[in-house]
Amino acid sequence: KSAVKALFDYKAQREDELTFTKSAIIQNVEKQDGGWWRGDYGGKKQLWFPSNYVEEMI
């Protein structure tokens, strides 16, 4: 599983989504079709976030 870095702040709209700030590192990313991926951040595990808010880390 990979890690991504947030390009923008994102505030969860639902309880199954992540809230994060710009430059946050989201771990254990599971990529899905449809523009939403799952990952771990801030003590939350495998919640959804919009993939267009992040960049992949190499």
Rank of each mutant, 00 (worst) to 15 (best):
K22H: 07
A6R: 03
S2Y: 14
L18K: 03
K22I: 09
L7W: 05
P50V: 02
L7H: 05
F20A: 00
W36I: 02
K31Y: 07
N52W: 13
I26V: 05
R38T: 07
L18R: 01
I25D: 03
T19D: 10
S23W: 13
V54E: 01
K11G: 07
V29C: 06
G43K: 07
K5V: 14
N52V: 11
L7S: 07
M57N: 08
E55K: 09
W48N: 04
W48C: 06
W37P: 00
F8R: 15
P50W: 06
A3I: 15
I58E: 14
A12L: 00
K11L: 14
S51H: 07
D9F: 04
V29K: 02
D16V: 09
D16M: 07
K5N: 05
Q32E: 11
S23M: 11
E30T: 15
A12V: 02
N52Q: 11
D33H: 12
I26Q: 03
I26M: 02
S23A: 12
W48M: 08
D16S: 09
E17N: 02
W48R: 11
S51N: 07
K45M: 13
V54D: 00
A6H: 01
V29A: 03
F8E: 09
K31A: 05
G42N: 13
W37Y: 05
I58G: 13
D40R: 01
Y10H: 04
K22R: 12
Q46G: 14
K5D: 03
L7G: 05
I25A: 04
V29Q: 00
Y53A: 11
K11P: 05
L47D: 02
D16Y: 08
T19V: 04
G35K: 09
G35I: 09
Q27E: 14
I25K: 04
G43D: 12
G35Y: 11
W36F: 08
K44I: 05
Y53D: 01
F8M: 13
K5I: 15
S23E: 13
Q32F: 15
E17A: 00
Q27G: 08
K22P: 03
R14E: 08
G34I: 05
F8A: 11
K45D: 06
N52Y: 10
P50A: 05
E55R: 08
Y10P: 00
A3R: 13
Y53I: 12
Y53N: 04
A24T: 08
Q46I: 02
G34Q: 07
K5T: 10
K31V: 08
V29S: 02
N28D: 05
Y41N: 03
I26N: 02
A3M: 15
L7R: 10
K44L: 12
G34T: 07
Q46V: 03
S2F: 15
K11V: 15
Q13T: 12
Y53C: 15
G43M: 08
G35T: 08
R14L: 07
T21D: 10
I26P: 00
V54W: 02
Q13C: 15
A12Q: 07
E15V: 11
A3Q: 14
E30Y: 13
E30D: 15
I26S: 00
D9E: 09
A6M: 02
E55S: 10
G42Y: 06
G39V: 02
S23Q: 10
D9C: 11
I58F: 14
T19C: 08
K44M: 14
W36Y: 08
V4Q: 05
Q46E: 06
N52I: 11
N52P: 06
A6P: 05
D16R: 05
K5P: 00
K44V: 08
E17I: 01
Y41V: 04
E17D: 04
S2I: 15
K5R: 15
A3T: 15
E30V: 15
Y53F: 12
G43A: 09
G39I: 03
L47A: 15
D16W: 11
N28M: 06
A24I: 06
K11R: 11
Q27P: 03
G35W: 08
Q46A: 10
S2C: 15
K1W: 11
N28H: 07
K1D: 10
S23C: 15
G39A: 00
I58N: 13
Q46S: 10
T21W: 10
L18W: 04
W36R: 09
